[in-house]
Every structure is written in structure tokens, then in C-alpha cells.
């Protein structure tokens, strides 16, 4: 699960640089989104819903045996699914401490997402990062 896309953050940054313009980069994000494993419909419930996104987003985190987390998330829009894929490259398979230590902004800046996403989409991305960190923080506060 951790490497379902076989793409690392560094691969992603390289691919973004290779693609000439944002139209192609968005198309690439859409392709990444298409590869994102869907959430089961039973998991698309209010408890897993991330608000603050224009599109519908559901996100859950499951602790793995080695104190890392498996993140599962889905959306009804493909570009958002692509952004979820980017978040998985950053946060999936990491420990709570690692998750809490990285707010993603360095990666978003390298990808240019900080400048090229609309303000509404940036807010949505931030909402997803906040949810991932909140779930990680909750697990540290109350170890299972």
C-alpha cells in the first residue's frame, strides 16, 4: 500500500519539471488520481469527511504494525484525487512523529502548487494536511 503509485516525491518533482506547462501538470495529477485506490462506499461517511474542500473528500488513517500509518482517501473529483496521491507520497507509511514534523509546504513549493493552485484549492489541500496531522497527533496523545 505504501508504494501503490511507485512514485516518490522526488520522482514527482522531476516529472513536474519535465512537463512543460500547468495544463500538462494538471493532466498528470488527473492520471495520478485515476490510479488512487477508491475508498469503499461504506467509508464515505461524515466521520471521514474532510470539510473545507470544494470537492467531497473522505480520509482515514489506519495504524500499521510498525507504528507507521496507512492513509486511505478519496474524492469525487480527479484533480483532488491527484492531490491526495501527492499527500500519500509525503505522508503514507510514516510515523506520527514524521507526519507531525512535515507540513508539506516544502514539497508543495517545489512542485509550484503553492502558486498554481487556486486559493480555494490551496485551502482544500491545507484542510487535508490538517486532518492527517490531527489524526497523527491524536494517536500520539492516546497511544492505541
Amino acid at each position: 500500500m505504501a508504494n501503490f503509485l511507485d512514485t516518490t516525491v522526488d520522482d514527482l518533482i522531476g516529472n513536474f519539471e519535465f512537463l512543460g506547462d500547468w495544463e500538462e501538470r494538471f493532466a498528470y495529477l488527473i492520471e495520478l488520481g485515476k490510479k488512487l485506490p477508491p475508498l469503499d462506499e461504506s467509508e464515505m461517511v461524515e466521520d471521514n469527511r474532510v470539510h473545507g474542500c470544494q470537492a467531497a473528500v473522505w480520509l482515514k488513517m489506519l495504524p500499521a504494525s510498525d507504528s507507521t500509518f496507512d492513509i486511505h482517501a478519496d474524492s469525487d473529483a480527479f484533480i483532488v484525487k491527484g492531490l491526495i496521491a501527492v499527500l500519500l507520497m509525503i505522508y503514507n507509511g510514516k510515523t506520527a512523529e514524521q507526519i507531525l514534523a512535515d507540513d508539506g509546504t516544502a514539497t508543495f513549493a517545489k512542485l509550484g502548487l503553492d502558486r498554481h493552485l487556486s486559493p480555494t484549492r490551496r485551502n482544500g489541500l491545507h484542510s487535508m494536511v490538517s486532518r492527517i496531522k490531527a489524526l497523527a497527533a491524536a494517536s500520539v496523545a492516546q497511544p492505541a
Binding site: D21, F26, A27, Q54, A55, A77, F78, I79
Partner: peptide, 21 residues
């Protein structure tokens, strides 16, 4: 086949301002 938000984002890349939501 395409979510309205995705459509509007891609149309914007071509200079076409739509609203989605």
C-alpha cells in the same frame, strides 16, 4: 465523465472562465 471542478480547472488552463460547484 468529468467532475465540474476538474472541468473548470482544465478550461481555465485554456483561458475559459467557468464556475463549478
Amino acid at each position: 465523465d468529468a467532475h465540474a471542478l476538474d472541468l473548470a480547472t482544465m478550461a481555465d488552463q485554456k483561458g475559459v472562465a467557468l464556475r463549478a460547484g
